[in-house]
Amino acid sequence: MGEEYALEVRNLNAWYGVRQSPFGGKARKHVLHDISFHIGRQEILGLVGESGCGKSTLCKVILGMLNTYEGEVIHYTKRPQVVFQDPFGSLNPAKKVGWILEEPLRLAGGMDKEARRRRVEEMLEAVGLPAEFRNRRPQELSGGQRQRVSIAAALIAGSKLIIADEPVSALDVTVQAQILDLLLRLQKEFGLSILFISHDLNVVYQVCERVLVMKKGRIVEQGDIDDIYDHPQEAYTKELLDAALDFENDEAEISDTVRL
């Protein structure tokens, strides 16, 4: 199975410690219930659900940001890397883009300064940014440009598994489309496996082949994206779909009005 899977999660249960009083111990809040799934090699797996359903917690467990869990998380590739939602919090404001991109290479070791610099320039080009962005600070970049830098930082050390936690949710629609295109292109170019987390079914539909639907810490439905889109089995999935479609219809109406 190791050849086909990039990541496998088996019977995962996770908790948060909640402090009840200054003197008492911590109570546990059960947030993930018996989660099992896998991500195939070179697959983009969608993960949808409304906010608070445990998507981000699952992402934290996979990335090793949360240790209070039981069950198995099996990595078949190098350590996964992450692209966060908020492009304004995910890049160190005190450092230049070049430094931020070089850091994973420095940590990995084995490359001299010149080689790292060349690698950074290659990676900037791969995500569609000019090489002189090396000398810019994150504050000087737009949201979309920052997200490109985040993606470059996640890929630069050769990681093949990317956890994208709502990577386009903070961007406006035109920039969203550009970043999604970029992710799809890089996925083919580098042979990436991606766990694509989103609350927006429309976005997931554009990039994923297979999708997991989460509700209240459980996976309620999983399967081929077209099947789920056309024949949702769960009432909850229907609701999510209706919400997404409503939003689209609203937009259509608005643009009609503008045209008149």
Partner: peptide, 20 residues
């Protein structure tokens, strides 16, 4: 998030505290 990214990249606590 940028500190978490550094942790996920494998930076040690000392490096995160004083370099990041």
């Amino acid at each position: 998030d940028f500190v978490w990214s550094a942790r996920i990249m494998g930076a040690g606590n000392l490096r995160i505290m004083f370099v990041h």
